[in-house]
Amino acid sequence: MSRARGGSGRVVRLGPRSALVLAFASLAGLMMFVWPLLVRVEPQSMQHGPDAPFVFVAILPVLILIVLAELSEGGMDAKALALLGVLSAVNAALRPLGAGVAGIETVFFLLVLAGRVFGAGFGFVLGCTSLFASALLTAGVGPWLPFQMLSSAWIGMGAGLLPRRVTGKAEIAMLVGYGIVVAYLFGFLMNLWFWPFITGAEVDYHDGHISYVPGAPVLDNLRRFAVFTLLTSTAGWDTGRAITNTAAILVLGPAVLATLRRAARRASHGLLPTFGDAGPASARSARPRRGADAPTCARTGNGMARTVNDRTANARQHEVGQPIRGQRSNYQGDS
């Protein structure tokens, strides 16, 4: 278990505190997505129903700000950041290559694969930055943006939380399954928060059968919503997205995973440098990797930095600190 966690938290560290913040923010965020189903209004406090969506639209960006601040507070080194920026740009650049029906699908495919390789924390942040950068490039900033950002962040994070041990064909199958699920889930969530806005909720003179009724039983609203989403988007957009996800992961998945893993290996994320003594004699004797040690080092395995460090015999030589903490905190003593 600790091996798996170590591997997934490699690029953007996800400590217990970050995980806690992330969990609460996700809970609050989820509430803001599914509020139409949760609203229970007393007849006399009817005015709170209509206000809720606007309050939530204002609060959701704040939630995202806090989570992102927490994730980068734990320390994000230049490598992770450059990777983040460049992959966000790739997501934006690959959009025109999509099937042409709906723009967003290719973003998900790379998001899922990157989340899988670089871990949950990175997936979460990549989901946010990809959508944000893409919105800036297309001048598409609006109240929908925080919702898009948060749901794609969840998609990236979820991909990072999938079981690590699965490899090979099973891994691709798992990712394809995940891709299909998130394609529909994304459409569902995005429809849900916007549903009352588009069909009209708070207007008392109208009682359409697919529109939202504040305070109605959950199941009733859910059924109305299901019909709405089925009629408007499930057949077209969501299924299109699911098909693109499936096809892209099946065809490109293995190669892209290999490419990303190679990049992770080359960037040696999480591998801390080691130092020997200045004296030539001790340098020879403390030299850790020759012969039998070499294969161990070639493998960029989880917890490997620890292995190397432990083998660098003398503890007093570890000026750079213990391998598990983020880099930033290691140097605080010096700065």
């Binding site: 801390l272 440098p273 020997g276 030299r287 190397v308 660098t312 750079v320 140097y331 700065s335």
Partner: peptide, 23 residues
Amino acid sequence: PHFTGGHLDGAVAVAGVLTRSRP
């Protein structure tokens, strides 16, 4: 070795500051 990883023996100093002591 801070960025690339690896193992460095000996000392590198610029203006008297050792590279091993700081990123």
